[in-house]
Design a protein around this nucleic acid. Structure first.
Lengths: 213, 213
DNA sequence: CGAATTAGATAGTGTTACTCTCCAATATTG
DNA sequence: CAATATTGGAGAGTAACACTATCTAATTCG
C-alpha cells in the first residue's frame, strides 16, 4: 500500500506518518520510484503500536523509540528481553535512602528477586517518597493488599507471554506492560466507585451539609 | 513564613511558587505590607500536594486546579465528594460501542454499580479499544484476575478513607487515587520482573541466540 | 501532454510548565 | 535619615514536545 492508504487504514494523518518516518519510529517503505514507496502490514501494525503507546500508554516519542528498539533487538533469552523492555519503560528519578530501604524490605519480605538497579525499584521508592511528602500514611496491611494484587496480576501477565518467538514475546510484554496499566487503573477506580457508593453514600461528614450542590 | 521560606521548605523555586499563585493553584498569603506576605503550614501542605500531583501523579496543572477545587468544595456526602474527585481525575475520550459493551458486560457480571456517565467507564473502554487495535487479546480469565485484584485494592482504599471530615476525606481520596497508582504499577512491574526471572530465564526463543550482547 | 499526487525536506505552530527580568515598595543597616 | 538589600507582583520570554503546513521536484494517471 502507499502512504495515503497507510494513513487511511491507521487513522494517522499523512504528515504525522512522515514525521514518524523521519524520527525513525517507522521503518521506511520500499521505494518503487523517486516519489513512491510501498508499505506493508508490518508498517501498519507498527504504526498502530506507536499510536497505542503514545496515546494510551502516554509514552513520549523518545521512549517509544527505545521500546521499539527493544522489540526489534531480541536478546539472549526472554528474561533478558523482558528486562530490557522494563528498563526502557520504567520512569527514572531518585528517591531518599529511607524510601529505598522501605522498598528493599518489601522485596525481601516477598522474596521478590529483581535487578539491583531496577528502574522499577526506583520508581516505587519515588512513589513512597511522594506519599511521605504529603503526609499520606500507607499502612503495612494496605501495602500487603497491593503487593498481593500486583503479584496476582503479574502471575497472569507472565503466564500469557508467548514463547514461540522473541519478537512476539517482547511485543507482548511491551503491550501488556503499557496498555494493560490503564485497564488495571480503570478497574481500580470503577471498583472504588462501586464501593464508595455502597459504603459512603450514607455517611455524613463533619462539615455542615448543604441542601443542594 | 515568607515566600522565600516557603520555597526553601518545599523545594519549589520562588518563581514557580509565584506562578502557582498567579494560576490560582495556591491561595495568596496574608499581605503584611505592599511587598510582604506571610504563608502558613496550609500553604506548605498545599504546595507539596500540587507538586506530588504534578510530578508523581503526572496531572496537568488544569487538572490539578480541578482536583483542588474538589478538595476545597466538599459536597453533600462522601460518595458525592469521591465521585467529584473521580470525575475530575478520570481521563476523557471516546471509544467504540463494542468496547463500551464489553465494559458494561463486565460491570454487570461483577455487579459493580457505577455512574452511567462515569469517566472511568469510558477510560476502560478506551483501553480495551487500544488493545483491540494492536491485536492484543485479553482473555476472560486474565481480565477476571485483573478485576479481582482491582476489587481487593479498592476494598483497602475505601476502608482507609477517614470519615471525620470532608476535607480530609477528599484529600485522602485524591491522594490515594493519584499517588497510589504509581505504587500499584511499580509493584506490578516488580512482580513481573521477579516472575520473569524465575519462569523465563531459561527459555530460549526461536531467534538464533547471540553469544554475546 | 497535462493535471493531480507523492516523497522528502524544511520551517512553522500550539501547548504546557515553567523561568527570567523588571520595578516599585519596603525592610534593614549604619 | 540615607543607603542598600530584599521582596512581591506583573509580564514577557523560553525550552521541550508533538505535530502540521509548505514547498519542490518527480512521476503517474487520464
Amino acid at each position: 500500500m502507499q502512504m495515503s492508504e497507510l494513513s487511511r487504514q491507521s487513522g494517522v494523518p499523512v504528515a504525522t506518518v512522515k514525521y514518524y518516518l523521519r524520527e525513525g519510529l517507522l521503518p521506511p517503505g520500499v521505494a518503487t520510484s523517486a516519489t513512491r514507496a510501498t508499505y506493508d502490514e508490518a508498517h501498519l501494525r507498527r504504526l498502530r503500536l506507536i499510536r497505542a503507546l503514545v496515546q494510551v500508554g502516554q509514552l513520549r516519542l523518545d521512549a517509544v523509540r527505545d521500546v521499539l528498539a527493544a522489540v526489534d533487538d531480541p536478546a539472549v533469552n526472554l528474561h533478558h528481553t523482558v528486562g530490557a523492555a522494563h528498563h526502557v519503560l520504567a520512569p527514572h528519578g531518585a528517591a531518599s535512602p529511607q524510601a529505598a530501604d522501605a522498598v528493599d524490605r518489601l522485596l525481601r519480605q516477598r522474596r521478590w528477586r529483581v535487578h539491583p538497579d531496577s528502574a522499577n525499584r526506583h520508581a516505587l521508592a519515588v512513589a513512597f517518597e511522594a506519599l511521605r511528602q504529603v503526609g499520606f500514611e500507607l499502612s503495612e496491611t494496605t501495602l500487603d493488599t497491593y503487593a498481593d494484587a500486583a503479584a496476582a496480576v503479574a502471575e497472569a501477565d507472565v503466564a500469557t507471554v508467548p514463547t514461540d518467538s522473541a519478537e512476539h514475546a517482547v511485543e507482548h510484554v511491551v503491550i501488556g506492560t503499557v496498555l494493560l496499566e490503564p485497564v488495571l487503573l480503570a478497574l481500580r477506580r470503577l471498583a472504588q466507585e462501586n464501593l464508595s457508593g455502597r459504603r459512603l453514600a450514607r455517611k455524613r461528614v463533619r462539615t455542615a451539609p448543604r441542601t443542594r450542590g
